[in-house]
């Protein structure tokens, strides 16, 4: 697919211009590293998802990752599938994501990334989506099914708008592809800890440590590890070698089981992992 690879020589806004990268750098200066928290928009309701996201930040989350519910979430495990399906059945519309970002940003000062599969962005219009996200105060996109080599339109639009773009790096990625992810990501590189989909795991793979080292060799400076992380101990372990730790399913489960108060408590507990 090299014929589709975007020309990466164009000026790419530097890390210093990315609020997400700055936040992660600051967390690494003051503490062990950054805590990135994921929750889907519209679960259990639009209002409650906004409250829950605010609670995450009030309890130690540095960067928010808001998931945009999608009918065919191939990278997600059962917990996130159930939550995003509930959101869709509750009537979630794309425009709700911008509303949620705006409301969260008016209440807390943490950068907010949207995590979205590509088709909703494509249908909304890549430029229009980016403009609406920027107006709402969003920081950028994490794109689980859009890689650098298939994302020429998003590379162009994110350069125009200055939005962050977080690409994924996997244990099976070649060095060449890791370099592409590092050079084209802005904010951080989403370092996939293990071969698999989202969901809490008891043991973290040694693969994450190896992958972070490989990304460093390619010049990676802002690296957050995600997938399978659910305890403060795991966060502490990851922040020993990476710049950020991403928690998703565990937070979603806490929200599903115990509501906003419970997800706030879990966030506070997990944030302990950033102090060691």
């Amino acid at each position: 697919m090299s014929d589709t690879i975007h020309d990466v020589t164009a000026a790419t806004p530097s890390a210093a211009e990315s609020p997400v990268a700055r936040t992660i750098a600051a967390a690494n200066a003051g503490r062990a590293g950054a805590f990135v928290g994921y929750l889907p928009v519209g679960f259990p309701s639009l209002d409650a998802s906004v409250d829950a996201a605010v609670a995450l930040v009030e309890n130690g989350v540095d960067v928010l990752e808001l998931g945009l519910p999608y009918s065919d979430p191939v990278m997600d495990g059962p917990v996130i599938q159930a939550a995003t399906l509930a959101s869709l059945q509750g009537g979630f519309r794309l425009a709700d994501a911008f509303t949620a970002v705006e409301r969260i940003r008016s209440r807390v000062d943490a950068p907010v990334l949207l995590m979205t599969y590509w088709n909703p962005v494509l249908q909304y219009g890549v430029d229009r989506f980016a403009d609406d996200l920027a107006s709402a105060g969003g920081a950028g996109l994490i794109t689980p099914d859009l890689t650098v080599d298939s994302g020429a339109d998003w590379l162009a639009t994110s350069d125009r708008t200055g939005l962050d773009r977080v690409f994924l790096a996997a244990p099976t990625s070649t060095d060449e592809r890791l370099r592409l992810a590092v050079e084209n990501s802005r904010g951080f590189v989403y370092t996939v800890s293990t071969m698999g989909i989202t969901g809490a795991r008891a043991d973290l793979d040694a693969a994450a440590r190896t992958l972070v080292a490989r990304l460093r060799e390619q010049g990676g400076e802002s690296l957050a590890v995600g997938i399978g992380i659910s305890t403060a101990d795991q966060i502490a372990e990851i922040l020993g070698y990476a710049d950020g730790a991403i928690v998703g399913s565990a937070l979603v489960k806490a929200l599903a089981d115990g509501g906003v108060a419970a997800v706030g408590r879990l966030a506070a507990e997990l944030a302990e992992g950033t102090h060691r």
Partner: peptide, 17 residues
């Protein structure tokens, strides 16, 4: 990978290899 404007590869990085 493309047939005109159709086709391509929109997949998680984990499956690219």
């Amino acid at each position: 990978p493309f047939f005109g404007e159709f086709g391509g590869r929109f997949m998680p990085e984990s499956l690219v290899a």
